[in-house]
Design a protein around this nucleic acid. Structure first.
Length: 596
RNA sequence: GGUUCCGUAGCUCAGUUGGAUAGAGCAACAGCCUUCUAAGCUGUGGGUCCCGCGUUCGAAUCGCGGCGGAAUCACCA
């Protein structure tokens, strides 16, 4: 039970006793008391006036007096305008600290306790170019949300749906065939995904050239695009691929293999994992049978050219194609099929798609179609729609070479972390291997935190000229706080001090209580983040806790405190703060070092 | 044009179902290491919460109307 919950109940009983009416949820508002006022928690009197039929100040006074005499935990109160500020007793607070420190999984619901199974799909790269900053946001969000959902007691399946087929893949393949001279990752020393990406760009260059030539011959822009020989060749290659032409198919396998090796390295660098990987080359045919089902039910209709459509104009949307005239499927056909397959195979309760907000319309349509087909679980599809990562100049454009490459960025962050650590002389006592681990941790911590602290649904700006900070509201700041705490705990252990025993309530000071308030709200933050799929809530919480601890650390000494009770309380508090920081950062997919 | 999302300090962002005098970080300036890690702490300056009207005891938050920006409305994915 949360502290707010306790006060809520006490308040409900008090109002009932005083005025004979039991207030409902909306009438009792409990919040943390603002720091500029005396007290711990505040009850807002205004919503209760209808019941008390008295002035706000009088209502708050009466309620406060009653609460203090009825609850030993509530020690004192004061009233400012319509706000009733309550102070909880020291023994109440120290009891909470004891409870938290006895619970090693504090803040997390027991594994699988909801009995629900949730699938999270994220990453979903194309195999024609390397990952960039936009993909990083997707991967970090997907991975963090998976952990948050798991921490809320659900079983989670993390999946990746790789787009390994289609015209864009053929473009890279064709360009490599024409201009590649047999280059391989081995022969060039280039990471596979980057090598293939180069040929994707090469195709585009050639294509543009051919369009210009066609236009000189008098063709319109559209005609020139449609009739450029290299584009016709690419389309022809896609048909050959679908017919499983051995030569094309083997080239496809080879080049995709290069890309997967490259992706594997990027994922490993980012610390991203999946439980299962789906490939569109294996799933793109799915969903066709459902189209027939929909035709029979009259949900879909067929046009004279044989294409299948659904009319969603009555739902405020448009008409949507489900099957091409030639009987081949489009993206949404496949998504219908895979959703159906996944729900039946894994008995899913919820399915979350981590996909950019440019596809909001697509998922709206997908949900609606499944609903119209009568699948009740369509209500349990969630599109975690995140905003684009923009540069100060606007959108990243791969054609203009303004994309921020994922591998480059990771490397740069680690190098910066290393440079800073060396400058500060922080890790001189570590072995090179250990130091290297810390550089990675800190560099990645900075990057991951920078991205995850922003509300997912908002678009965010990244300025490559101003490197990501390591001071202030950043990952390294929080990691540093953790390292500091561990250092204190190590010293305590070296001195043979045991961090256990009974807490003396009188040892609790004002700053310690502020820290405890933060600690106590952790489970609520985890629940909130789970309900809203928002790692940003966790990130901002972790920062607040770290900031509070650093102030405490600066103003008070822990190991040099002479009063044994105070020393024990401060050590227990430090240990719990360290543990909460580690858990919060774990939820973000960020590791924390023992030293830095 | 329709739909959806967004607009908070010079910059990057918080602000949980409407609550007290709107907060952090960066950048700028001024301080704090003989003391558990200074990747830290303290202080100063910085605001028409895009604008207007409305609902309310109370609006950055809710509603309506503007202005500005983004995404989307493909036999692409």
């Amino acid at each position: 039970m949360t502290v707010e919950g306790f006060i809520f109940d006490a308040c409900q009983k008090a109002v009932d006793a005083l005025y004979g009416v039991k207030p409902d949820n909306s009438q009792i508002q409990v919040q943390l008391t603002r720091k500029d006022f005396e007290g711990d928690y505040t009850i807002v009197a205004f919503p209760l006036l209808k019941i008390s039929k008295k002035k706000p100040e009088d209502t708050a006074q009466e309620l406060g007096a009653y609460l203090v005499q009825a609850n030993p935990e509530i020690e004192a109160f004061n009233v400012v305008k319509g706000f009733l500020n309550l102070s909880l007793s020291h023994s109440f607070w120290s009891g909470l600290l004891a409870a938290v420190s006895a619970d090693s999984s504090y803040g997390f619901a027991p594994k699988g306790s909801t009995g629900k199974t949730v699938m999270v799909e994220y990453s979903s790269p194309n195999t024609n170019k390397p990952l960039h900053l936009g993909h990083i946001r997707n991967n970090l969000l997907g991975y963090s949300v998976s952990r948050i959902i798991e921490a809320n007691g659900n079983n989670v399946h993390k999946v990746n749906l790789v787009n390994d087929r289609g015209i864009h893949i053929c473009k890279s393949m064709l360009a490599w065939q024409k201009f590649g001279k047999g280059e391989t990752p081995e022969s060039t020393g280039k990471k596979g995904d980057h090598l293939v990406g180069d040929y994707y760009v090469r195709f585009d260059k050639e294509y543009k050239k051919q369009i210009e030539v066609q236009k000189l011959q008098g063709l319109t822009e559209d005609d020139a695009k449609a009739k450029a020989p290299i584009m016709l060749e690419a389309q022809d290659m896609l048909r050959q691929w679908e017919a499983k032409d051995p030569e094309v198919y083997s080239l496809w396998e080879t080049m995709n293999g290069w890309v997967y090796d490259g992706f594997a390295k990027t994922y490993a660098d980012l610390g991203i994992e999946f439980d299962k990987v789906y490939y569109e080359s294996q799933t793109y045919i799915l969903g066709k049978s459902i189209v027939n089902e929909g035709l029979e039910k009259g949900v879909f209709y067929k046009r004279p050219d044989g294409s299948v459509w659904i009319n969603l104009t009555n739902d405020g949307l448009d008409e949507k194609l489900l099957l091409r005239g030639d009987g081949t499927s489009v993206y949404i056909t496949q998504d219908i099929g895979t959703a159906l397959q996944r729900f039946s195979e894994f008995h899913l309760n919820d399915h979350i798609y981590v996909v950019g907000n440019e596809q909001e319309y697509h998922f709206q349509v997908l949900k609606l179609i499944l609903k119209k087909l009568g699948y009740e679980w369509s209500e349990h599809l969630f599109h975690l729609s995140y905003g684009m990562v923009q540069l100060p100049e606007g959108k990243m454009k791969s054609r203009e070479g303004t994309v921020v490459d994922a591998d480059d960025l990771v490397e740069e962050m680690i190098a910066t972390a290393k440079g800073m650590a060396e400058e500060l002389g922080k890790l001189d006592n570590l072995t090179p291997d250990e130091a290297e681990k810390v550089y990675r941790m800190v560099g990645l911590g900075a990057l991951k935190y920078f991205i995850l602290k922003v509300d997912p649904k908002k678009s965010m700006t990244f300025n490559p000229k101003e490197s990501i900070d390591f001071n202030g509201n950043t990952g390294p700041f929080i990691q540093y706080t953790h390292a500091r705490i561990q250092s204190v705990l190590r010293k305590a252990a070296d001195a043979g001090i045991s961090i256990s025993g009974t807490i003396n309530p009188n040892a609790l000071g004002a700053k310690e209580k502020e820290l405890l308030k933060q600690i106590v709200s952790f489970p609520e933050v985890v629940a909130q983040a789970g309900a809203s799929f928002s790692p940003a809530l966790i990130a901002n919480y972790a920062f607040e806790v770290a900031k509070e601890f650093n102030q405490f650390y600066h103003d008070f000494s822990i190991l040099k405190e002479e009063n044994a009770d105070v020393k024990l309380l401060r050590l227990m508090l430090s240990k719990e703060v360290g543990s909460i920081i580690r858990k919060a950062m774990w939820l973000l997919g960020i590791d924390v070092p023992e030293r830095m």
